[in-house]
């Protein structure tokens, strides 16, 4: 195989398919996924529940074999080269799995003892802010604390590639921020991160690349800016009955939950026009909100099947062509 590619991508997936069951009850959860995770990047895999994210990750983690297609992790096959791959990867599953009767410290000692080159238990306890709970049995931990123990295990072997399935689900906002700081820190230290999350704001802020999955396929790839490009900006305010005709740039208007929502291709011009009209007419725009196209709006459009830029359109091809 080409060694340059191995240096460039920590994960390479081609034509990946995964089918559950056989015969009439068979269900294809992953339907031809191509995915490249550049070395040193944070790549976020996004999608609604059931989009096939976890099914894809399990194959990359070497826990399941694909029905079709190929997977390379750090240049190797995660199933047949299991031992070599596992030494260099850290995995966080969607649901944590620990024996409740062991304390946090014992759990980390147990895990550390299975690794070739574990970082010290006490260092991990401090890194994940578990000092106050070190002698508590896992059974008595909160969901967020258990997740931090799990992350400590994931990072304990000093992995080059970290695969995280919803690392922040169930964490309070402060812990979420800490976990993301930790993940950014991994990138600073040269590691590669592949992560799924339901928090689009996190993905947008922290990920270098986004891969949006829908119905078993990746339907959009790129940087957050590239993905949002071409989508309309929105202006919203408390519902007004009377609005000027033809605000420049506005393409769509709707009323929702007592608010008026305008979509525009040119946020600055539309907003200037609207504000000038309001100022001139003594109209107050309560709870005024103006925002550039967000990942959330793109994501919701894809999830609802009203994706304004279909993958077949030339614009997307150009976008993807420049990335792949």
């Amino acid at each position: 195989m080409n060694s340059d590619l191995h240096n460039e991508f920590a994960v390479r997936v081609r034509g990946l398919r995964r089918t559950y069951g056989t015969g009439a009850s068979a269900f294809e959860a992953v339907r031809g996924v191509d995915l490249d995770v550049p070395v040193g990047s944070i790549t976020a895999l996004l999608g609604t529940n059931g989009a096939g994210k976890t099914s894809t990750l399990e194959i990359i983690e070497g826990l399941a074999e694909p029905s079709a297609g190929s997977v390379e992790v750090l240049g190797r096959n995660p199933v047949t080269d299991r031992a070599a791959v596992r030494r260099r990867t850290g995995v966080l599953l969607q649901r944590s799995g620990f024996s409740g009767d062991l304390t946090v410290r014992e759990t980390l000692k147990l895990w550390g003892g299975t690794l070739s080159a574990p970082r010290p238990v006490e260092e991990m306890i401090d890194l994940l802010d578990l000092r106050g709970r070190a002698d508590t049995r896992v059974l008595s931990l909160s969901g967020g604390e258990t997740r931090r123990v799990d992350l400590a295990c994931t990072l304990m072997g000093g992995p080059e590639l970290v695969v995280l399935d919803e690392p922040t689900t169930g964490l309070d906002p402060e812990s979420r921020r800490e976990v993301w700081a930790l993940i950014s820190g991994l990138r600073e230290a040269g590691a590669t991160v592949l992560v799924t999350t339901h928090y689009l704001d996190e993905a947008e802020t922290l990920a270098d690349r986004l891969e949006i999955m829908h119905a078993g396929q990746i339907v959009r790839s790129g940087t957050p800016t590239q993905i949002a490009a071409g989508h309309p900006s929105t202006i919203s305010f408390s519902r007004l009955e009377q609005l000027p005709e033809g605000i420049s740039g506005v393409t769509h208007r709707r009323e929702e939950y007592g608010r008026t929502i305008l979509q525009t291709q040119d946020l600055q011009t539309s907003l200037a026009h609207l504000l000038a009209w309001a100022g001139g007419n003594g109209v107050r725009l309560d709870s005024l909100d103006a925002r550039s196209p967000s990942l959330e709006s793109v994501f919701l459009a894809i999830a609802d099947g009203r994706d304004p830029i279909s993958p077949e359109s030339s614009e997307t091809e150009l976008l993807e062509g420049s990335l792949r």
């Binding site: 826990l63 031992a83 596992r86 030494r87 599953l93």
Partner: peptide
């Protein structure tokens, strides 16, 4: 019970054979 608690799945993501 370890299988139900997902302990086995967790262990299999690591170096343990």
């Amino acid at each position: 019970s370890r299988r139900d608690e997902l302990v086995l799945k967790r262990m299999r993501t690591g170096e343990t054979k």
